[in-house]
Write a protein that binds this DNA or RNA. Structure first.
Lengths: 396, 396
DNA sequence: CGATCTTTGTCCTGAGTGTGGAGAAAGTTG
DNA sequence: CAACTTTCTCCACACTCAGGACAAAGATCG
């Protein structure tokens, strides 16, 4: 099957494609209402898009009191691949051109196994999705990695938790294997884009997306655009110091946020507490599973375990303290919290909110929602699809 | 005299005006090299600008081996007024269209005297500048106030250190008095724009501009544009907590950065030290002046006073700690430090650098200059002129 | 001092972009 | 079936813009 070869020839076409992607109007007349173009020019550009095959007109819509309109939509066979490489698992999903997730696979895997092994797994998963009939091929792929990325080149740089990935040509390699265009970004940025596209941040121009998983990172969206910083490391808040002479961190410093609270830190603290006999609930879980994760702590807290609750509350205070500073600095319109610890839910949220509302100025917090992400593991892959679609739906 | 009435009719004209403002080429041919337009189109737009009077062609340049070119430049009689209202003083300057400062006045004044009194003073100073022959009138004015501003309306909001200013229609009032367009912004943002236009940040797209005066604020420039946040309070880092249960702050919290280090805090600490007999140098200065300021501390440190040096070093550590966090988060390409404490100079800078380079990740600090502002008090007024000129030099 | 080359600026034609009106097509409503 | 709506197409006209031809003005060199 022939894959997407054409690209929009001008900004009008690009805007039309995005309008259609984002679930907008689907007749020429309705498109005309939302784009600043005359009917005639609009018709010309739509016709050209129809010629390229990026867009199809299939069937007629119901009448709204007059002549029935043609349904204009993005080519239904277009498929994007969204890949989200986390520290401990890989998510792969296939979407249509509207970025609706048609199929989604997850595979536990340590990113430290290196790019070659991870890519092999990604290709297996992509093949499985293809084999299940969801796609005959991919028109583009977005991929997120858990570390800073030199964005224009699509190459990870100096990733602390990803030895072996430094300088690996992710974009080029994956593009070669899949035979389609590929864009690479930080996983946190993709989560932010996902929540922006289909989640809680749909209507917000400036927001922060704090992802608490094995580590902690923060996606920054300013003026509707992801902000990546000078070297692509913007949002790397895991190593902000929260306690002078605090705990030793893998980065070599002491007192980093990540060392005091993160999925990994929480699990370790819970195990310590269980072994110290502070919580029978946690001890029981440790006994049966051999180790603890954030999920266990969440379950224990839900069961009313005071120690687990304390751990969550203290962690929330730590993150909240940092977020409070970021809120003062960045003055976002929304703070989204997501990642593996979302299961800790409202206990975590409550202490974060307390810290932020207490420490930041009223002007910055007055109308500031602090909420959990809406999309869970879908956020990353949706963001990945969005990344590549933004790229393909812009003039060449 | 007739003032500037015309505005650029399209983006081409706007770009040409900015090219000319920013000291660019000044013949049609040279303009053509830097703008993506054909010679013919360029000639048309230049002719139209000449007709409006925004631009003049005066005289011929020296030959460069062929026909001599016409000097194209912004109308020489254009004048912008730059106003920088600080907590304890008012700066007013007049610039030409290239934003060169032609005259600059400073007047000590407490912003808490309220907008009416301050405006009266600003108008007196503007009149003085006009009387000295530097301007026959003003084509536009930019004004900075030491607090958050609802930018589109030009109205200060909830300014903690400016009682009486909340909701005062600064833009409208000043525009009425001066009879020209006015734009209002936070003083810190203007300092950032000043350093961006004519100072150390000329070539940097993403940078932070930390202003340490009576309080502490931070201008944020992302992608070449000032970032103001959702409610205009972005960069308000003075109330980030640096010490749990630290010193009481005017905002009602404890441990705010501003309470531990700022022009005001430094002066107070120095006086305390002098009274406690920890420094004969500071005591002598306190004796003779009745009070101490950051300037005294700087002088004492320059004279080798250990206590003064300690105060500066400790303050630098505090700010450095916060800046380190911001660097991790924002990943800027440059950090500029300015404001009243610039006199503390390299002693301050040294401890800030130490903190940042120690606490932030190598990827973010690897190529990160941390420098003092280049323009001093001129930064604010230059930024103010730049603000209004950006506004006037864009299509209506 | 003239011939030639360079640089600058102007003019003109033709291709392409985009608008708005006229009106055809295809419905609904009474 | 007449009147009205909505959607879509076609067409004439204005405007934008690029690039070539060429004129103006000076430098360079034999």
């Amino acid at each position: 099957m022939r894959r997407m070869t054409a690209r929009p020839a001008n900004t009008h076409q690009a805007r039309l494609l995005r309008l259609l992607r984002d679930g907008g109007p689907n007749s020429r007349a309705q498109l005309g209402d939302r784009i600043d173009l005359s009917r005639s020019k609009l018709a010309v550009e739509v016709d050209r898009l129809l010629e390229t095959g990026l867009v199809v007109a299939d069937g007629l819509a119901a009448s709204r009191g007059g002549r029935r309109s043609h349904n204009i939509r993005l080519a239904p066979q277009l498929r994007f691949l969204g890949v989200d490489i986390g520290a401990t698992s890989v998510d792969v999903a296939v979407t249509n051109a509207e970025l609706e997730v048609l199929g989604h696979l997850n595979h536990p895997m340590d990113v430290r196994e290196g790019p070659v092994a991870v890519f092999e797994q990604v290709l297996v998963m992509a093949a499985k999705l293809r084999a299940s009939g969801l796609a005959e091929g991919f028109d583009g792929a977005g991929i997120g990695v858990p570390g800073p990325v030199r964005f224009p080149e699509g190459v990870p740089v100096a990733p602390p938790i990803m030895p072996g990935w430094d300088g690996f040509p992710v974009r080029e390699a994956l593009s070669q294997e899949l035979g389609c265009p590929v864009m690479v970004d930080n996983d946190v940025n993709l989560m932010a884009m996902g929540e922006q596209h289909a989640g809680v941040a749909r209507t917000v121009g400036d927001f922060l997306c704090v992802k608490i998983g094995t580590g902690i990172g923060c996606g920054i969206v300013a003026g509707g655009e992801v902000y990546r910083g000078t070297t692509g490391s913007a949002g790397d808040i895991g190593h902000i110091q929260v306690e002078p002479d605090g705990r030793a961190c893998a980065c070599g410093n002491r007192g980093c946020l990540e060392a005091h609270f993160s999925g990994a830190a929480l699990a370790r603290d819970a195990e310590d507490a269980a072994r110290a006999g502070q919580s029978t609930e946690l001890a029981a879980r440790l006994e049966s599973a051999g180790k603890l994760t954030a999920v266990d702590v969440a379950a224990a807290a839900a069961a009313g375990d005071a120690t687990a609750l304390d751990l969550i509350r203290e962690g929330g205070n730590r993150v909240g303290q940092v977020i409070a500073g970021l809120v003062s600095f960045f003055n976002p319109g929304l703070v989204v919290i997501g990642g593996g610890v979302t299961g800790l839910g409202h206990n975590l949220l409550a202490s974060v909110r307390t810290q932020v509302y207490r420490q930041s100025l009223p002007l910055a917090t007055g109308n500031l929602p602090i909420v959990l992400g809406e999309l869970g593991p879908v956020a990353g892959v949706t963001g990945a699809a969005r990344l590549i679609s933004d790229h393909l739906f812009s003039p060449a």
